[in-house]
Amino acid sequence: MTYRIYGGNPSPYSRKLRAILRYRRLPHVWKAGTPETLPEIAQVKPKLIPVLQLPESGELRVDSTPLAYLLEQRHAERSIIPPGAAEAFLCHLLEDFADEWLTKLMFHYRWHEDATALWASHWIVSDAIPSATGKVHDQMAKMFHDRQRGRMGMVGCTPENAPVIEASYARLLDILGPYVGGQHYLFGSRPSLADFGIYGQLSQLVIDPWPQRLCRERAPAVEAWVITLDDASGVDGEWKPERGAAVREALLEMVGAEYLPFLLANAQAMEKGEKEFSVRIRGRGYAQQPFAYQAKCFADIRRRWAELPAEARAGLEGVMEKTGCLGYLQ
Rank of each mutant, 00 (worst) to 15 (best):
M1A: 13
Y3W: 14
R4Q: 13
G7M: 05
S11W: 09
S11D: 11
S14W: 12
K16I: 05
I20C: 14
L21S: 09
L21Q: 14
W30H: 11
G33V: 05
T34L: 11
T34F: 15
T34Q: 08
E36Y: 15
Q43R: 14
Q43V: 14
K45Q: 15
K45P: 12
P46K: 10
P46F: 08
P46V: 10
K47M: 12
L52Q: 11
Q53H: 08
P55F: 09
P55M: 12
E59H: 12
D63S: 14
P66S: 11
A68S: 15
L71I: 07
Q73C: 10
Q73G: 15
R74P: 05
H75L: 00
E77I: 10
R78P: 04
I81T: 12
P83Q: 12
A86T: 01
E87R: 02
A88M: 06
H92V: 09
L93I: 15
A98V: 07
D99V: 12
K104I: 07
L105N: 04
M106I: 05
R110N: 13
E113H: 09
T116K: 04
A117V: 05
H122K: 10
I124G: 00
P130R: 02
P130K: 03
S131I: 06
T133C: 12
T133N: 07
V136S: 09
V136Q: 15
H137F: 07
D138M: 01
D138V: 07
Q139T: 02
A141L: 03
M143D: 00
G150Q: 02
G150C: 08
M152L: 11
V155L: 04
C157E: 01
N161D: 00
E166Q: 04
L172H: 04
D174P: 03
Y179N: 08
Y179K: 05
H184N: 14
H184V: 05
Y185H: 04
L186N: 06
G188Y: 02
R190W: 00
L193V: 07
A194F: 00
D195Q: 00
Y199W: 12
G200W: 01
L214N: 04
R218L: 11
P220Y: 12
P220T: 11
V222Y: 04
E223R: 06
A224Q: 06
L229Y: 14
D231F: 09
S233D: 09
E238W: 11
K240G: 02
K240S: 09
P241M: 07
P241F: 13
E242T: 11
G244I: 02
R248T: 08
R248K: 08
E249L: 01
L251A: 08
E253N: 04
G256E: 00
P261F: 12
L263S: 05
L264E: 14
L264G: 10
Q268G: 01
E271N: 00
E274I: 06
E274M: 06
F277M: 03
S278F: 05
R280Q: 13
G283Q: 14
G285F: 09
A287C: 02
A287R: 12
A292K: 07
Y293I: 13
Q294A: 03
C297A: 07
D300C: 13
R302T: 13
R302F: 15
R303T: 13
R304D: 01
R304A: 02
R304E: 03
W305D: 08
P309S: 06
E311K: 10
A312W: 03
A314F: 09
A314P: 03
G324E: 03
G327T: 15
G327N: 11
Y328H: 15
Q330A: 14
Q330F: 13
